[in-house]
Write a protein that binds this DNA or RNA. Sequence first.
DNA 1: CCTGCTAATTGAGCATCTGTCAACAAACGC
DNA 2: GCGTTTGTTGACAGATGCTCAATTAGCAGG
Lengths: 203, 203
Amino acid sequence: MAVTPDVVSPPGLTTRMSADARRAQLIEVGWELLQSRPIHELPLDDVASAAGISRTLLFHYFPTKADFYFAVVSTMGKRLLHPPRLPEGAGAPDRIRSLVDGFVRLVERNRLSYTALVRGAGGGDQRIVELIADTRDALVPRWLDAADCPDTSPLTRLIVRGWLVGMEETVLAWDPRSVSREALVDHLTASFLAELALAEGRT
Amino acid sequence: MAVTPDVVSPPGLTTRMSADARRAQLIEVGWELLQSRPIHELPLDDVASAAGISRTLLFHYFPTKADFYFAVVSTMGKRLLHPPRLPEGAGAPDRIRSLVDGFVRLVERNRLSYTALVRGAGGGDQRIVELIADTRDALVPRWLDAADCPDTSPLTRLIVRGWLVGMEETVLAWDPRSVSREALVDHLTASFLAELALAEGRT
DNA sequence: CCTGCTAATTGAGCATCTGTCAACAAACGC
DNA sequence: GCGTTTGTTGACAGATGCTCAATTAGCAGG
């Protein structure tokens, strides 16, 4: 009969939140769910019901699903990859070793989150692919600084970029039962220094 | 009126093909379309109409969209990455250099296809992620053989795996205007040999 | 305390896309 | 020719991204 929707939602169950708090909550809930399944297997209905709201409200805060996904990945990426501070006093090898060690520990503690962020990331989404590329680009000068090589050739920067991706793969594929963490960190440190010397010497 | 669907398809326009030919054609068409857009932006309607058939027929050959996607990626992956044959007579450095050079040329000629296959690949699809992982695993012993290192430690295999992924990233990010191909190939070759020596020496 | 405005929230509906089902028709054997 | 096999199809059902008008909770001012 009624063309107008007759709302029957129990009055006490709807909890009203501020816009910022709601946004933060939704990102949190999305992040929670995204660790166990990739984005294209996560209907927004699930996000909404997990957050205790209607799907429409989700669209109120994030105009499209891609926007929501980007917000989640971007936020959590910043939270996970907060810039590591370099140990000042030590020599270049120690600083590199510290960076390697930090990354290995990061992956050890947040393996699931990290893979969800980097591996499942994108799913073809252009913005997220760019986000990851930018993040990697920003990492290169940081490592070069740590190695006392502020000015470098394009080849060196290219090689370091590839090396970083290789390291990521190595650490993610690493099985602590067959290789100790110390051996891994030692080798990666030596590898980076050797790679850098090779690239710079060739310039 | 008629509950039974009254077919009005023009009799002459439906071209009937053998099952194998149809499968091959569909994979070909899908591959064509997948180079310009990721899988989740490609409706099966488009594939069907591009192939000149109804969407239903596509489901007859591939029970689900994921199956179709896997078939495309798997087929084209085999076609693109047909195992490179090693030059027999030369020494280890020459063989490695040949492998590196082959990969660089492969990417130069098929950059778009390669990125579509490896980068867009997955999109979260479990089977495709595993397919790529398996392909990389299979590559490691091939490169180790070329370097005359058939028996190696777990650390070495792990490092080589990471190095291969790093090389892929390097070549994909490579800009020929700032780094010549010869310099790239030279460096990657030297890098692999240095990395291998480092890993083996440490064992 | 009430009134009215702002903004958070929602149900209903639309469009698109995946996957199903029964029916039709083109080739092939007898 | 006739029946069987199977390539092929239109129509329908279910799920999901997204839109819109309506409803209501909170808050400021009288």
